[in-house]
Structure formats: structure tokens, C-alpha cells
Amino acid sequence: MIFTSCISIIGRSNASKVVSRSCEQKTAIYKQSASAACNKIQPHNNICENNVWLYYFLLTNTHYFVIIKCVEVESEVTVMSENEKIKDLMTKTTDGIVTTKQVTESGIHRSALKEMVDIGELYRYARGLYLSKDAWEDDFYLLQKKYGRGIFSHDTALYLLGYSDRTPAKYTMTFPKGYNAPSLKQESIIVKRVIPENYSFGIIEMQSYCGHSINVYDLERTLCDILRGSGSDIQIVNAAMKKYAASKEKNIHKLMQYAEILRVKPKVQRYMEVLL
């Protein structure tokens, strides 16, 4: 596409209305006035199309005129394909993940996502959640993105907090009662549910092993959780309680507060009496 670049020089005049004329005509009109305005010249760049420049000028009650020199230049307008738009969108993320919501909000048709999956540029991790072929697959982070209300808990939280060296065969996430995403039944995770008042306390944000932010229950909450009910290996429980008792960062007051809320205070007390 051809545009005409108009390089203008601004000087003082009595002109006060909008004018649209060819660049050649405008130059001729103000040619005689150019020398008189040289001591007040300021650079001013514009783009005019088809050699016609539309302008107006009024600044602090002083009118200005413009001397114009027109130069034709070529400029290519590149139209990005839908796939290129998605790639551009993904360059603005740090995790290599794009969602259907992000795509549609950017004005991109969601069918482009399927095309990119078909050609191997994207991997469909879950409904509405796509991963770049070059991105590192962080299971903790992907589960967090998929289930925003899920909190890593129990044995999984112990592992993430460095209180267990046993990699969980299945990750455990806790949800508030009433939350029932259909895909949870097909997910290979252990699902725990708690009443809403016991859901929100003790949540912390930490980095996964790949450096992504995930939500985990803190250590005191996790120790209380693994003492509730069944499912946790007794060896893992004993090792975690011993390590906590020996830690300089332990917070016995908070541990006992949590234990009372979660109704495991007698169990926690027995451990602490033996280990402290």
C-alpha cells in the first residue's frame, strides 16, 4: 500500500479553520511566508493519503499554518492469520499456556485452537486449556489452572513442603463441599472435601518445582489433615511429625489452634508430648 509521508513545518498565521488541499497546493500557498516563520519552526510529522492532508490548528489561542513537503513511501500492511495471533498471544505468557477464554477475548475464533492442535503446535491438556509444544509440562501447575479452587493437601502438601521424600502416586487436592466439577471423576487425583469454614484457613501460595505459583495448605494445617481420618501412611506421618518437632520454624501455637478447629487436638498433643 502506498502512503504519502507529509513532513510539515509549523509557523504562526491567522488561519483558523480546517483545510483539506493537495500537498502541492498547500506548499505554493505558504511558500512566501516560509522565511518569516523560520525563527518559530517546530518539527511535526503526519501521514497523508492520496496527496491530501487534512489538518486544523489552534493552540493557546494562537493559530498556526503548515508548510508541507510530500514524499511517497511504501508501507506493507501484514495481516496476521488466526494461528499467528495465538502464537503472538502465547509469547506474552510465561507459562506456555493459553485458554479458550483468552483466545475468544482477543477476538480469535476458537476453531484456530483445534487447527493448532492438529498440526502439533498445541497440546489440549483439558477442556479450555492448551499447552505449547515447547512448554514444560508442570502437573501441579496444570492441575491448579484446571481446578482453581483446589488446594494441594495431605501427602501431596507434605511432599511439596519438603516434609516427605516420597513422590505421591496420586496428587491430593482439597475442595469446599458443594464444588463438583464434572471432570473430577475422571481425574487421576485424590479428592478431599471440607465444609466451607474449614476450607480457607491455612492456604499459602508457593512455587512448584518448575517455578509456577500453586496453592498449598501450610505445614501446620497439613499435619492436622494427615492425622484426620485414614489414608496417610503411618511412616510418612511419623517422619513428618518428628521433623516438625525438631524444626526451629515450628509454630506450636498455630498447630494447636488448627488441631482444635479440625478436631484432632488429642492426637496432636500425644505426638508433641512424646517428641518435644
Rank of each mutant, 00 (worst) to 15 (best):
M1P: 10
I2A: 07
T4E: 11
C6D: 03
I7N: 09
I7D: 12
S8Y: 03
S8I: 04
I10M: 08
G11V: 00
K17Y: 00
V18N: 07
V18A: 07
V18M: 12
V18P: 00
S22W: 02
C23D: 11
C23G: 03
E24Q: 11
Q25F: 07
K31D: 08
Q32M: 12
Q32G: 15
A34R: 10
A37E: 13
N39E: 06
Q42T: 14
P43I: 15
H44N: 13
W53I: 14
Y55M: 11
T60Y: 01
H63G: 04
F65D: 14
V66H: 15
I68S: 13
C70D: 14
E72I: 08
E74D: 14
S75R: 15
E76C: 07
V77A: 01
V79G: 04
S81K: 07
E84T: 05
I86W: 03
L89C: 01
T91E: 12
T91R: 15
D95F: 14
D95E: 12
I97N: 03
V98G: 07
V103I: 05
T104D: 14
E105P: 00
G107N: 03
I108L: 04
H109W: 06
H109F: 03
A112W: 00
L113R: 01
L113C: 04
E115N: 11
E115V: 03
M116I: 01
D118S: 12
L122R: 02
Y123D: 02
R124G: 03
R124D: 01
A126V: 00
R127H: 13
G128I: 09
L129P: 01
K133R: 05
D134T: 12
D134Y: 13
E137A: 15
D138I: 12
D139P: 02
L143W: 04
K145C: 13
K145T: 13
G148T: 15
H154G: 04
H154P: 06
D155I: 11
D155H: 06
T156H: 05
L158P: 04
Y159V: 01
L160F: 03
G162I: 04
Y163M: 11
P168T: 07
K170M: 12
K170N: 10
Y171S: 06
T172I: 10
T172C: 08
M173Y: 06
Q186E: 14
E187I: 01
I190L: 08
V191R: 08
K192M: 04
R193Y: 06
R193D: 01
I195Q: 13
P196E: 14
E197T: 13
Y199D: 07
G202E: 02
I203E: 09
Y209N: 09
Y209H: 14
S213P: 01
N215Y: 12
G229K: 03
S230N: 12
D233A: 12
D233R: 15
I234E: 09
N238Q: 15
N238P: 00
A239R: 11
A240F: 04
M241K: 02
M241W: 05
K242V: 08
K242C: 14
K243F: 05
K243P: 10
A245M: 07
A246E: 06
S247D: 12
E249M: 05
N251W: 06
I252V: 13
H253T: 14
K254P: 05
K254Q: 11
Q257C: 06
Q257I: 00
Y258T: 06
A259Y: 04
L262A: 03
K265G: 06
P266N: 09
R270M: 11
M272V: 14
L275Q: 10
L275W: 11
